[in-house]
Design a protein around this nucleic acid. Structure first.
Lengths: 129, 129
DNA sequence: GGCCTATTTTAGTGTTTACTCATTCATCTA
DNA sequence: TAGATGAATGAGTAAACACTAAAATAGGCC
């Protein structure tokens, strides 16, 4: 069966109205929602969420958030049970996603969180039950 | 070289102090950050983020958020370019992660977003540049 | 320049994920 | 109760991911 037929049966069940006009109207409403949901930010948002959706990367962002300042790559090494290479990968992904900024200081590289990263962590903390 | 040696060189570069005591102190500070970052919520937070970090699932949550109420499974079908099975999988994952609630209504199932889901979307919207 | 060190990048590999298809479960109705 | 429909679940698979190890890049110092 097509998804439109099912929608028609659903609308019949819900409101008694079962004409094609009502189905078309509901479809139009839904497509409006879809258009509003699927704007150009969708891809970027999913990238940001993907970047945070990993234990190593999430922990890096958390540590930086709590540190409330910048940390050197070498300071993560003792805290994370992965190779330096993995830490560097993680830092690059987070930076690309807009969750961290990177700064050179001589031969050291320092990272800090962005406002976006902080906003997400605050939202997570604030919605925990 | 060990990560502690590198940390020692870093602290020397930064502050001139290069004794073992300073290194030990900084290590203790870092481990405190790590402990604060790695609480019992870490795993749950990463699950939530993983659930949202997928275009299909993100779009479902967005649509429900904009709809500002509940929608039937059958209403997603016309909007998403995946099978009904994939939609059902996605809805279950989101529900398990605590981002949606599910309600039976006769033979139809209706979903709505949780406060946690709304908080995350608001944080994303509010931190967009 | 030549060497050492901090970090990044590239390549390769085992694991996880996101989907489809087929099947099962649940609810309504004839 | 049988049949039909809505939705969930299980199995299988191709693609994406997260890591390691090795090589490359880049800065500081002799």
């Amino acid at each position: 069966m097509s998804s439109t037929e099912r929608l028609q049966r659903y609308l019949s069940d819900e409101s008694g109205s079962c004409g094609d006009a009502e189905v078309a109207q509901r479809l139009a409403e839904l497509e409006e929602l879809d258009a509003a949901a699927g704007g150009p930010d969708l891809e970027a948002d999913v990238s940001v969420l993907s970047a945070l959706a990993n234990e190593t990367r999430y922990k890096i962002v958390r540590i930086l958030h709590i540190a409330d300042g910048e940390l050197c790559v070498c300071e993560f090494s003792p805290l994370l049970d992965v190779s330096d290479s993995a830490i560097s990968h993680a830092l690059s992904q987070l930076t690309d996603a807009g969750l961290l900024t990177r700064r050179k200081d001589g031969k050291w590289r320092k990272y800090r969180t962005t406002a976006r990263a902080n906003a997400l962590l605050v939202a997570l903390d604030g919605s925990r039950k």
